[in-house]
Design a protein around this nucleic acid. Sequence first.
DNA 1: TTCGCCTGAGAACGAGCGTTCTCCGGTGCT
DNA 2: AGCACCGGAGAACGCTCGTTCTCAGGCGAA
Lengths: 192, 192
Amino acid sequence: MIDEQTAREQVVTAADRLFYTRGIQAVGMDAVRAEAGVSLKRIYGLFPSKDDLVIAVLHRRTEQWNTGIATSAEGAKTPEEKLLAVFDFLSGWFRQDDFRGCAFINSYGELGASSAAVAQVARQQKADFQRYVASLVEELGAPSSLAPQLALLAEGAQTTAAISGDASAAAHARSAAQILIAAALGRVPAAA
Amino acid sequence: MIDEQTAREQVVTAADRLFYTRGIQAVGMDAVRAEAGVSLKRIYGLFPSKDDLVIAVLHRRTEQWNTGIATSAEGAKTPEEKLLAVFDFLSGWFRQDDFRGCAFINSYGELGASSAAVAQVARQQKADFQRYVASLVEELGAPSSLAPQLALLAEGAQTTAAISGDASAAAHARSAAQILIAAALGRVPAAA
DNA sequence: TTCGCCTGAGAACGAGCGTTCTCCGGTGCT
DNA sequence: AGCACCGGAGAACGCTCGTTCTCAGGCGAA
């Protein structure tokens, strides 16, 4: 038999793919079982309820997001480049053919009203991201008001890319970010 | 008996309130009946299925959004003021205590994968808004690349305000918009 | 008044869901 | 080998939902 850790990962991976592409409520636990190849009994042994599974999926999405951002920032030398790397990361993500928007926003829209835990995880992820941006802005020596502005661009790019199916939202966000950064640093920004 | 038009409005109003606050799938048709005070039979006479009702609700949201934006722009004299009025409109909206994010984004996250009609209406609304912003940008004589940037800010503000519960997102978006507009016009923007 | 007709209230139906239970075959220990 | 346990397959259960059907009551026309 596969060990517990592997089973957990298989279930979360399968659930993530199904939830993300079809919506959480539209996916039954039996579909997760089929996709994961793990028996229903085992799944309920690992995750006491579907809600717990949803939370586990969102937690893994948080980690993936964080490492994705970190990886994208690796080649960047200055804080400014690291900030812009966020939008490069988004650009690559938007171009994946299974892209269907930010899982946190989607989950919040679907379950945020009925599940406090889901709302909490989504809020947490957004707060973490805001903190990350804020730390880079501080490192850059720019006024702290720049941070929420850049975060707004990243959020907007995600929903625009999802709904309008316009992957170039990342590029627009990136150039807007450049302008805002330049302005915050007192440089004369190059008009887009 | 109440006439058809009134019944339609009562049903859509009730459904909108319930769908928006609790999520669409979490609200049964019987709850709509109770809230609207219109019999189930009548509802199904007016809207052949729940999907049709959802679409009707989203259509009315579109109208409300458009008139809200237009009203907010009424006092504005220049295209620039009209653009900024969008964010003032958002600010007022975010502060309503029943605010729970953009209904189109929420609906898309919940049903966009399973209902093509819902996805279509959401996409349409976003496209209309983009066109509105683009027309103002053109009127302003700014490069057209400014339009998607401003739209991005508005979208981001909505999701941020919803998930983080941070109504000041509108203010952040507004000042970012001012900077982007100034830069696009070749003026030296005032750092936030 | 009497007869249709229409409407509202709500029961009914069929499907799908989350969750639990049953049963059976295999596995490891003695 | 014999036995106790464990996990998988999937049936079962209780519930909710979208949608339809039934039925009784009220209203207008003759």
